[in-house]
Design a protein around this nucleic acid. Structure first.
Lengths: 248, 248
DNA sequence: TTGCTCCTCACGTCACGTGAGGTGGC
DNA sequence: TTGCTCCTCACGTCACGTGAGGTGGC
């Protein structure tokens, strides 16, 4: 006969866990000796290993209780379910290994693939890392707010990167970040942006919604946090392009 | 800007979890709008994904807090540790898949391999399944009480299975279970057991401790639960062999 | 006497879940 | 007005962990 400590040690459980299983009614309370100590027999070892094996596999104790009294067929059925749950959990853990590895670097974790690909495209045409970060933050908000459409929009914009004038405008926008807000080049840039928008609208037959440039109203509205969060030159550019767009 | 619901949905967390991360000081409390609603920016998305990715990987929230402010080198180091922990967890789950599979049938889960092999040996020489069960329960108690020695004892006994007289005695013992306690064959069996013990003691030069048969005092003492747990014939056999052993 | 194992409460832990009761914009 | 999302307490959950205070055999 075994004491609770020896029983627990043999199956790799704690004494407290064995008492817990008694409390929950999973393991039958054994006889006591003259000192009030519980005295376990071999059947208790078998029962406890059954309980612990199921519990370790993630089966809730309430369900363990059912399984102990289930028919052999139901038991085998349940084992198959538990095995499937374990396999699913393993797949999850493999996923998580990927995700924590990506955590050290890269935007893939925060954005749909198509958006991350567009950001890589910006890097490829020479947009500064700072400019890419501003874009990234904007896209995070867009993707959170319009999960269905974000990827398609990113593909549309990525396609425009094949257009030389679009690339020139993007790079100019990027450089303008540090300019003096009074710099006359901002006026010319605003003109060029509007001209490009109109040209694209004509070519594609879509309305003149200015969805083609870095300065389209949608992304602008989403990105604008408290006033002053953009650079002074970019604030100015926003005003200028909106004036020109309104003038028609 | 995002509400808490949209933020949570985007990263796959619950609203409650996000509030919890605020409470724990892991995620900075953002500005509120005129209604008192929290308004999140892109940085909050990045921070939350970082938190959730680590938390999902099983990192305690207290440690997540440290990691968020850790240096890049410490962070990379910690990622490696976490990855190792995930791999260890995966190995554990694979182990558990084995164990629940074995739960449906077999003694391997309850006993050291050498003991299970000995039980298979008993089956091979024709011992009844009932007899094997009694042995199994005895060995469970022995293994729990003497984890170091059990395997070696089992190997010793398994070696004896090569001995024809040992096999004969074991099978006779097995059959004797149902006999009438007054059956004269019990006396002859007791004589044969003692004779075999003495012979083995002479051959191996070890003391006459009667450790060779199913009836050795050690296993008997361990297995004997409340009186009457053995069959009447086996109780009688125990008495008879002890008498003969004492007479010398 | 000291050390060890056992006993029974009963509160603590961890990461949220789940109402309870209320507000604000469509 | 109804429905939805948000807000702040605050208690509940799950499987034990961890003392608190005490007993019994070597």
């Amino acid at each position: 006969m075994l004491t609770i400590g020896r029983l627990a040690a043999y199956v790799g459980a704690t004494v407290r866990a064995v008492r817990h299983y008694h409390q929950r009614g999973l393991l039958a309370e054994p006889e006591r000796d003259s000192s009030g100590y519980r005295t376990y027999d071999a059947q208790a070892v078998v029962d406890l290993i059954r309980i612990k094996t199921l519990a370790d596999a993630g089966v809730p104790l309430a369900r363990v209780g059912e399984l102990l009294t289930a028919s052999p067929e139901r038991f085998v059925e349940a084992i198959a379910e538990i095995d499937e749950a374990l396999r699913a959990r393993i797949r999850e853990l493999e996923e998580q290994r990927h995700r924590i590895a990506e955590l050290a670097a890269g935007d893939r974790l925060f954005l749909p693939d198509d958006v991350a690909a567009f950001l890589d495209g910006l890097r490829a045409i020479g947009v500064s890392e700072r400019g890419v970060q501003v874009e990234r933050d904007t896209w995070i908000l867009v993707a959170a707010r319009y999960p269905e459409q974000a990827a398609a929009w990113a593909r549309d914009k990525a396609a425009l990167l094949g257009h030389p004038e679009f690339r020139r405008l993007y790079r100019a926008f990027d450089e303008a970040y540090d300019w003096d807000p009074a710099d006359p080049r901002l006026e010319r840039l605003a003109d060029d942006v509007i001209a490009f928008d109109r040209r694209m609208a004509r070519e594609t037959g879509e309305p003149d919604e200015a969805a083609w440039t870095v300065d389209d109203p949608l992304t602008r509205a989403l990105a604008s946090g408290p006033p002053g969060s953009l650079s002074p030159a970019w604030e100015r550019l926003t005003v200028l392009t909106q004036e020109r767009a309104a003038r028609g």
